[in-house]
Computed example of a mutant assay.
Amino acid sequence: MVTLRRARPDEAGVLSAVAQAAKAHWGYDEAFLESVREELTLTAADVESRRVVVAVLDGEVVGFYSLDGAPPHGELGNLWVRPDRIGTGLGRVLWEHALAEADAAGFERLDVEADPHAEGFYLRMGAERIGGTPSGSIPGRVLPLLRVRPRDRRTS
């Protein structure tokens, strides 16, 4: 059974590894992965300063999300699932928890800068596409920009 809890600063390396492995799952080449490595690396300070929640299964971190910003408008800064857990429902569990936490914290909306491969997931979860946003790592690359209203979109 998966347990959700706040991340600890000493787990920053594990969280970075999960994010980087999940990105690699989509078949990006090594040059691309190297160009986004910094963006996918969390520090202990990042974990301390953000609302980061991990999913733990059999004592191992298998996914996580972060809520960034301050109410009423924030961002789902991360939602990553270890590649061996993709397609198991863990992403939905993290999404639902993130929306419940965002709602409880007073967020009226969350924006999501999605990897193009993840856009379908977010749309199925109830987010809507509101446009595009420049990649923070790759000049000229535009990522799907989605939005969700936590109170309206929780499905559980």
Rank of each mutant, 00 (worst) to 15 (best):
V18P: 15
R129Y: 04
W95L: 08
A55E: 02
V36E: 11
R50L: 12
S156K: 08
E39Y: 07
F121C: 08
P72T: 01
N78I: 00
S135L: 04
W26R: 15
R151I: 00
A55I: 01
R129G: 01
E119T: 06
V148T: 09
L94K: 08
V148H: 04
Y28C: 01
R50W: 07
L76E: 12
A19R: 13
E48N: 07
A104N: 04
R154F: 04
S35K: 15
R147F: 02
E128K: 12
R109A: 14
R109G: 05
S66P: 03
F121W: 10
R51T: 11
M1F: 01
A19H: 10
A118Q: 08
E128L: 03
L90K: 07
H117D: 13
E38I: 02
K23S: 09
V148R: 04
H73A: 10
I130V: 15
L15D: 02
I138S: 11
R149F: 00
W80I: 00
E108V: 13
R82G: 01
R51H: 11
L4M: 12
L110K: 07
R154P: 02
D68T: 07
M1K: 09
V2Q: 00
R82H: 13
G136N: 14
H117R: 14
I86C: 08
D111A: 03
V81E: 03
L79C: 05
E48G: 10
D68I: 06
A31V: 15
E48Y: 01
S49M: 09
G132W: 12
A102V: 07
P116L: 06
V36P: 13
Y28W: 06
V54R: 04
V93Q: 12
L146C: 09
T43Q: 08
E96Q: 13
I130M: 11
P71Q: 07
P9S: 06
T155Q: 14
R92V: 11
D103M: 00
E113F: 04
T133N: 06
G106L: 09
F107W: 06
L33T: 15
H97E: 08
A24D: 12
V36A: 06
G91Y: 07
T155I: 03
L94D: 04
L67F: 11
G59C: 02
I138C: 09
A22R: 15
K23G: 00
E39C: 01
S156T: 10
S49F: 01
R109H: 07
V18I: 15
L143W: 14
L42M: 15
E39D: 13
F32I: 12
L33Y: 13
P139V: 00
L79A: 05
G13T: 10
H117Y: 11
A114N: 09
D115H: 12
P150D: 05
L145M: 09
P139A: 03
L67Y: 10
D115Q: 12
A7N: 04
G136P: 13
W26L: 13
T43F: 01
L145P: 07
G140M: 02
R147H: 02
R6S: 10
L143F: 11
L15K: 05
A44D: 09
V52M: 04
L33W: 14
G77V: 08
D68S: 05
R8G: 00
S35G: 03
M1G: 14
A102H: 11
G136D: 14
